[in-house]
Design a binder for these strands. Sequence first.
DNA 1: CGTCCACTGGAATCAAGGGTCT
DNA 2: AGACCCTTGATTCCAGTGGACG
Length: 414
Amino acid sequence: MYGMAEDNIFTQYIQKRNVIVKNKKILQSSYIPSNLPHRDDKINEIVEIVAPSLNKDKPSNILIIGKTGTGKTAVMNYIGKELKKADENQENCAFIYINCEVVDNPYGILYNISNQIITDPNKKIPFTGWSLDKIFSELTTYIDKEDKIFIIVLDEIDRSFQKNGDDIFYYLTTINEILEKSRVSIIGITNNAKFTEFLSPKIKSRLGEEKVIFPPYTVNQLKDILYERAREAFDDGILDDDVIPYCAALSAQEMGDARRALDLLRMSADIAERNGDKKITAAHVKSAKNKIELDAVSEVIKTLTVQSKTVLLSVIKNTEDGMTTMTTGDVYTTYKYICEAISQSILTQRRVAGLISELDMLGIVHARVKSFGRAGRTKEIELNTPKEIVNMIKSDEVFTDLYSYKPSKQTTLM
DNA sequence: CGTCCACTGGAATCAAGGGTCT
DNA sequence: AGACCCTTGATTCCAGTGGACG
């Protein structure tokens, strides 16, 4: 890839790309900096709780609560790194990190934990096929064999809970009763402050032995974070003076989300590079903001089921037919019509209502239950999507048949 | 004040599709 | 090959329910 010696159509592009950003990795939100500004207190707080593990004493379980982009994950990864340094041969403790947003089913979580512990490639657990009990007992024996403290970090723990309840948490918090030598302590990370309310009381108290709250960053703190990274990522004079304050201000509106701030900065740099500009300005930030918002939605749309897309298209079609708000029944009628047009199986109304709720949770449509008195009680649905996305759905290959479809009795469509 | 609509929301269950184990 | 296991999406069943209308 990079070894192309001769000029080709990409050459000038490649040369241009590296002009502005020295090291792109630094601007990635997954990058773990060696210094986390304004989180020293939180780091100390957690280190204090976790430190006993270095002497093979079991630390309390911790629940970390804080909005997205407040540094929870970064702090934990940083601590994990340091912990490994402090315990060179991994004799006393092991640090395991699982992101429950990526693997949100019980099998996946146990599978991931186990395979981080099991080193022998022949003993690894297959990614499907086993019973949970079997993985669990296997995991237990492996953990006990090692005779050390296992610190298991479950990031985005509420994701898993939403879909699967608290069974795995029950497993993981009771495992210590079975273990003879080793000990396991759980660190849960969540951005949902109300998360614990839904747990069963037993697990609630176990999981939340200690709580650490991460407050949102203030504008000035965000600025510091950005300056810190920018210093390493850019040469002097590339950033306009108002770029970082602007990024910080925008992200502060979004509840002090540092990830957002970094994304903005990175995307601004990207756009500037692509335009061949020598400096990054507030204007770049502005278009970066739009692009990020759009990307986020279109990313979600891509992963939707065909059925979900059909439901969404139904909402779109109704909107284009002049309805600003509609009921579940309205959507379902249109939905049935479209299904017929593209010869797709028709789901139950119950299911479609469920899909609408899912779209609502994804923020693609607005739906809230409203009672129309005698006229019944239903969801009031409203489209909540930029034009670009609407076009994206409409031009989805799944719906190509729709435009050539001649309805038997209804009038025109779209 | 009671009725009664058009659903909602929860739960149990099924089917298909991934796979392992013996 | 047949018995099992887990996940996901869909179905079926059913007990609610907010509030305009009579």
